[in-house]
Nucleic acid binder design. Structure first.
Lengths: 135, 135
DNA sequence: TTACGCTATGTAATAGTATAACATTACAGT
DNA sequence: ACTGTAATGTTATACTATTACATAGCGTAA
């Protein structure tokens, strides 16, 4: 449920944080991002958190609440912005982002019925991805 | 997605933590629980976290990932155990627990299709409850 | 130009959340 | 009694996030 306008111009810090997340193969905690950007001059958590706040607001990054970590959005710029859902593999740590209009539609319908004014939703699945299942 | 057997017997610490959450009118952080149990002899966070782990496993307590807090389950004992979803009011902090078979069914169906072996799900809505909306 | 407002930044200190490690106790089953 | 398992107590530490305050850049209206 991002408020993403069109492609925003990123500041230097925002671009560095976004780049670190894009290069990562999975979610990173804010402190992991910090460690990867020390060579670029990052010194304090707040530099990361401030950039993350903006990137999340732009819809370029998602926060995974159940992991206290962040991932780059896997959708192309300007693409349809159903609120995202995530499947997190407890074995390999991989995250699959998906957007299912039926699911979010059902949640919106529930909110409507309950007169709950919806501003955001968190949908995170836990389990094992196909590759990490033995059988 | 609790593994709740039938009504488990709680240890003293578990019962105290559960009681604190039941008495609370909303979610409590682990440290808030700790503060409320100091008179009962609680001294360290681990006493709370260990009890919470069990209570969550029993299905008697839910963890709200987007709040880093815990609430007592609002269902009667032994009641049907669809994975719970939550609507969290950003104004009053109130939490409404609901279970919608269509929503969880759709998520299970997505997992099935993606060969994702599901062990748990987090569904949390944010916004304003009916009472907190002005107009 | 200067003055103002707004956003972004740098830095240090602190608050809040969660776990590791180790010692001890309780109790059921053999 | 011996063993295995679960629960507990306690200290220390790790991890996550924000407050507070100082500084710098930039656009715009006077």
């Amino acid at each position: 449920m991002s408020v993403a306008g069109k492609a925003p111009e990123l500041t230097r810090n925002q671009a560095l944080v976004h780049g670190a997340l894009v290069r990562a193969d999975g979610p990173l905690s804010a402190y992991e991002v910090l460690d990867r950007l020390r060579e670029q001059g990052f010194k304090a958590p707040l530099q990361v958190y401030r950039a993350l706040d903006k990137l999340v607001a732009f819809g370029l990054v998602h926060r995974l609440e159940s992991l206290n970590a962040f991932v780059a959005c896997s959708h192309a710029e300007g693409e349809t912005e159903e609120p995202a859902a995530f499947a997190i593999c407890d074995s390999c740590g991989g995250v699959t982002e998906f957007a299912d209009a039926r699911i979010t539609g059902d949640l919106k319908a529930w909110a409507e019925t309950d007169r709950f004014s919806l501003t955001g939703m968190t949908i995170e699945l836990r389990g094992l991805c196909a590759a990490c299942q033995t059988g």
